[in-house]
Design a protein around this nucleic acid. Structure first.
Lengths: 191, 191
DNA sequence: GTGTTGTCACCTAGGTGATAAAAT
DNA sequence: ATTTTATCACCTAGGTGACAACAC
């Protein structure tokens, strides 16, 4: 499994929404499903104080998230290897809404994890792969304005705010690498 | 295979865009793909004269269309039987555009045909099923205004024209059963 | 105070028939 | 004269962050 567009992930240190993975080495004629879930990276809450994220509160027991099934699933290995795979339809939430949404704990840090599960055949093989550079802190509102600026810059659906910024000639989108990362619920688009 | 909403098909005599099929009797754990293609019903061109479609020109040799693969394919029998199956994404055209579009001959009559193909397993079983009540004549512009009115009435994307008609209080949508049927290319939505 | 929710304007993306112009 | 194409206004459908109101 290859994380696509890794430089952008590194530049953003994370939280961009242009991320895609590639898969190689599957049996083209075998059937696979691709799953995505989120592993808590540590036990505690995080707070954003003085422009940086710091651990807060006591460590808690945290279980990993429910699993998101890629909408192309199930499909042939040939299909998965034919083109990069996007998880742009996954939706995150902090409360049970019913539906395909994945529930996470707000202000906790997670690491996305991809599973390739062979289905339909005899041997039900499973492969896991996670990407540390895609860790994020789940929030209900952005804390770091540099994250907001990068989101606006790279997401076509936020073009309204990009236009407003250009019209007002107020300030440029920061070029520096942000030192923290977070995503709002239902905004993990394009992964 | 069951044609859903058959009364609407009959009322429209065809060409509505609310049509969906159901499937029963599959092996829930076996893998199937669903295909759609269009069979020419006769060899000649059709013309719309004096409010009705009449055969025109000499019989020609006509081969059936390319095949459209349902986007859920491949999938388990359980998936196909779980909910009605919609072919709302199929796009028709009269010239080669490249892409998943199905090319048909304008002013010719077709009958949609569904194929259920068992894939991935040993025995590659195939089932075919067609629905005479869904026959249509492919056109590049509507000929029968009653068809246009019914399209506007039942397709949410044409709400603009429905609103305009209601505002103007010009005339009602006809309740009579239209005596001919046709669809414009790229407008077979919702089948 | 801190964190959350709902609403909003503003986009992207794309499905409608109407219409005028063009092709045949 | 007939058929086709391109463009258009007008919708549906849904993804953005901003913002004010709310809950704790």
């Amino acid at each position: 499994i290859i994380l696509e567009d890794a430089p952008l992930w590194q530049r953003f240190k994370e939280v961009t929404n242009e991320m895609i993975i590639s898969v190689t080495g599957l049996d083209p004629s075998a059937m696979y499903s691709l799953l995505l879930d989120f592993v808590p990276t540590d036990g505690h809450r995080w707070k954003y104080v003085n422009g940086e994220w710091v651990p807060a509160g006591k460590p808690e027991v945290s279980s990993h998230s429910c699993v998101y099934i890629h909408p192309d699933s199930p499909n042939f290995g040939a299909h998965w290897m034919n083109a990069p795979i996007s998880f742009s339809k996954v939706k995150l939430t902090n409360k049970l809404n019913g539906g395909g949404q994945i529930m996470l704990n707000s202000l906790h840090k997670y690491e996305p994890q991809v599973h390739i599960v062979r289905v339909g055949g005899a041997h039900r093989m499973v492969m896991n792969c996670s990407f540390p550079e895609t860790q994020f802190i789940a929030v209900t509102a952005y804390q770091n304005e540099e994250i907001t600026a990068l989101k606006i810059k790279y997401n076509p659906f936020a073009k309204a705010f990009l236009d407003a910024k250009e019209r007002n000639h107020l300030k440029d989108v920061p070029e520096a690498i942000p030192e923290s990362q977070h995503v709002t619920y239902s905004h993990l688009g394009g992964w």
